[in-house]
């Protein structure tokens, strides 16, 4: 327990937790947006995240090889994020069109099985592309640290923490303030009524997938830059953890997914202080079990009327 009396450990561990938590939250938003509208769990979302990471990797590798990255390191990273978002958004839209739309009126189990199938297909597709070898993100920007006396924080961590918050605030405003956001909320509330009011439901569902996928792509590139190693199975564990975060906050609830992501990240970081580090994954999945038993609707609850 002596760890909790040490302010340095508390602060360092909070930074660790917020960094990984921001990534979980960005992925969790994809689960929660889709669930809010379609009441289905898109289990291929982890793979969309993985493809985004590889999209960024391909772009960065291209910039490094062509020498562009040496001249404009910042610009090439921005371009890598955009490339990743485009790739994931296209993939998300394709998935919706091919794997989910034909099953929209089928029993609820059918799209779930379709999602798991899509997930396995995408993992194996990437395995064939990269020949099952781990890939390493190029070091374009050296990692620098912001120092305050004995405390220090990496610019990468600052970037992930603030970047994820910014995107989440943006998403929240988009859903609350824009016309499309309003339409998304309307479709979530009552698909048929929304359709009668002249909302193109198919278009709104597609937009939801595109937004969720693009957010996952951002998380994918962040993971690539921060942890450097990526492989075809990288979407599996973060995908399930982000799903846990979405359930934790109340699935279908956008602020809940953000809260759940940060909560899970912090729980993992601080949990390591009280138990051996090898049980890190136990914390996430233990939390999932506890939430499902004692508060199945999550911390903030499933928002029924304001879903999306």
């Amino acid at each position: 327990m002596s760890y909790l009396l040490n302010p340095q450990v508390i602060i360092d561990q909070s930074i660790n937790g917020l960094t990984i938590g921001g990534i979980y939250a960005l992925i969790a938003l994809g689960y929660t947006l889709v669930y809010g509208i379609l009441f289905m769990i898109n289990f291929a979302h982890g793979e969309i995240f993985m493809f985004g990471s590889f999209g960024g990797f391909a772009a960065l590798t291209y910039f490094v090889n062509s020498g562009f990255a040496d001249a404009h390191p910042g610009l090439s990273i921005v371009a890598a994020f955009l490339a990743a978002m485009v790739i994931s958004a296209i993939l998300g839209a394709l998935l919706e069109r091919i794997a989910y739309r034909p099953l929209r009126n089928a029993p609820r189990l059918a799209p779930l099985i379709s999602a798991i199938g899509a997930s396995i297909f995408l993992q194996n597709l990437m395995m064939l592309i990269i020949k099952a070898r781990m890939q390493v993100y190029p070091d374009i920007i050296p990692e620098e640290f912001l120092e305050f006396g004995q405390y220090s924080i990496s610019y990468f961590q600052l970037f992930i923490i603030f970047g994820s918050v910014l995107l989440m605030v943006g998403l929240y405003l988009f859903i609350q303030k824009t016309k499309t956001g309003k339409a998304m909320r309307a479709v979530a509330e009552d698909r048929e009524a929304a359709s009668l009011m002249g909302i193109d439901v198919n278009r709104i569902i597609l937009i939801t997938f595109v937004i969720g996928s693009a957010l996952a792509a951002v998380a994918g590139v962040m993971v690539g830059i921060y942890y450097t190693q990526i492989d075809h199975m990288m979407g599996f564990i973060p995908g399930i953890k982000a799903f846990t975060a979405a359930v934790l906050g109340g699935i279908g609830n956008v602020p809940g997914a953000m809260l759940g992501g940060y909560f899970l990240g912090l729980a993992e970081a601080f949990g390591v202080l009280f138990m051996p580090a090898e049980y890190k994954d136990v914390i996430a999945f233990g939390l999932l079990v506890l939430v499902l038993i004692f508060r199945p609707s999550g911390i903030l609850g499933e928002v029924v009327s304001e879903r999306a």
């Binding site: 760890y3 040490n6 340095q8 450990v9 360092d12 561990q13 660790n16 937790g17 960094t19 990984i20 993971v223 942890y227 190693q229 199975m233 990288m234 564990i237 993992e268 970081a269 601080f270 949990g271 390591v272 202080l273 051996p276 580090a277 090898e278 890190k280 994954d281």
Partner: peptide
């Protein structure tokens, strides 16, 4: 003495625990 999980990418929590 601590164990890590093969395939995990985030070891900062355990390293922070070791730091003091």
């Amino acid at each position: 003495s601590e164990g890590l999980t093969r395939g995990d990418k985030d070891f900062s929590p355990v390293l922070t625990k070791i730091k003091p």
